[in-house]
Simulated assay, not measured.
Amino acid sequence: MKASQFFQKIHLGPYLLKNRIVLPPLTRSRSTQPGNIANELMATYYIQRASAGFMVTEGTQIEPRGQGYAWTPGIYSPEQIAGWRHVTDAVHAEGNIIFAQLWHVGRVSHTSLQPNAEAPVAPSAIAANNVKVFIETAPGMGALADPSMPRALTTAEVKALVQLYAQAARNALSAGFDGVEIHCANGYLVNQFISAQSNQREDEYGGSLSNRLRFLQEVIQAVAEVVGADHLGVRFAPLFESTEQDRVYMGLVEDDPHTTYIAAIKVLEDAGIAYLSIAEADWDHAPELPDSFRQDVRQTFSGRIIYAGRYTAERGARLLDSGLADLIAFGRPFIANPDLPERMANDWPLNPVDPSSMYGGTEKGYIDYPAYQQ
């Protein structure tokens, strides 16, 4: 692995990255309560993984209505901004680059997580089925629950949400982040606007594909005006085969996903953003993206392309060597192996991940995974 493309430097926007290994957004639900505030424990977690070439935070809700899971951090209050500043200062002290992932779950939420126990907001009043959210049942305790029925946003509210993304980007800069990634994947708010499965609006944000892409386009434009297009990334999760669960939630499979997502990627290209991150299906026996789609992505988008989704070092190296990817993100392996790049460089064995400590809890299964001992 020492001679592989993983360890060649590469530019991403204005930054020169030391390798092509990415720490992707990984929900861990360890923020301080009350207030969903990033903390020193989280700073330690990110410092431990600062040997990545590029780092993106866990999904960070842009406003109170954007939360769908207990204990996830926000970036809309002064306390949250100050908490994230501890994280960015720590990462910068290690000489690394970190972007904040701006997140709004839309309909994938529960009234108990919403201000005044109101209904979640969404493009249309269509419930998210076959998926669970995570709600707090007592301090430090929680349970899975079905998402609540959402209400449809008015046109004026949609436009106000665009500005909430812009404000979240300003907050991210105040918190010391080097840029931001907009979460447009996995069935959350922006994905809900893109998908004909979840968007049945009759105004300028619904109907035709160009209308369904309007929210994405306006959010990108508003955020780019704050951070600069070369400090901006977008994450998609296109699926080409699905069970019914995947259709309604994990990527909202379109009747013609190739056409939908290439059109969406053209929006990114027109905006001149720094990178596109593609989250592939990561469950057992999940279908791979078609080669024709990967090739069209490369032909359509001139920025950097990141792929994630149960990649091994060998599989990732093949994709880098093909020229279809510029960087590869590793999720579970980076959770369990804070020194992942060094292990990859030396072909050292990996720690297994502990699924029971993935979400919520203490430092156990969070910052206590050991580095490799020779």
Rank of each mutant, 00 (worst) to 15 (best):
Y249K: 03
V223K: 03
E280N: 14
H11T: 15
I335Y: 04
L164Y: 08
T57L: 07
R85M: 04
V180E: 01
L17E: 03
S124H: 07
D368I: 10
T259N: 05
A274E: 06
G13E: 02
G13R: 03
I273D: 10
G13H: 06
G331C: 10
A127Q: 11
V158M: 10
K18W: 01
A317F: 06
R247C: 08
H285R: 15
L189C: 14
F293T: 10
A119C: 01
R332M: 15
I194T: 07
E202K: 15
Y261I: 14
I262H: 01
T260Q: 12
V56A: 00
M141A: 14
D326P: 06
L232F: 00
P352C: 11
Y261T: 11
A3W: 10
D146R: 12
I335D: 01
R107G: 07
D296R: 01
L340T: 13
E244P: 07
A313W: 07
G251M: 10
P352G: 11
H285G: 13
Y359F: 04
L350Y: 12
A3T: 15
R85A: 09
W283I: 12
K364H: 13
V22L: 09
R85H: 05
I335F: 05
P338D: 08
N211F: 13
G360K: 06
I265Q: 01
P287H: 15
L102W: 03
T312P: 02
A160R: 10
L17H: 06
A3L: 15
A329E: 09
I75C: 08
G83E: 07
A128C: 08
G309R: 12
S210D: 11
P352T: 15
M149L: 07
G140I: 12
V56E: 00
A93V: 04
I75L: 12
N351E: 02
D270V: 04
Y15Q: 07
Y76A: 01
Y165V: 05
A224V: 10
G179P: 09
L289R: 12
R151L: 03
T27S: 10
S292A: 13
T243M: 06
A143V: 14
G83D: 08
I194W: 07
K364L: 11
E288H: 15
I21H: 05
A263N: 13
L26A: 08
P123W: 02
P14C: 11
E225P: 00
S148C: 01
Y45L: 04
V353A: 03
A38S: 11
G272R: 08
P238Q: 00
A168Y: 02
L319P: 00
F99D: 11
P287D: 14
P370M: 08
N186A: 14
G187P: 12
E94W: 08
D321Y: 06
G303W: 07
G303H: 06
R20P: 02
H258V: 15
S31C: 13
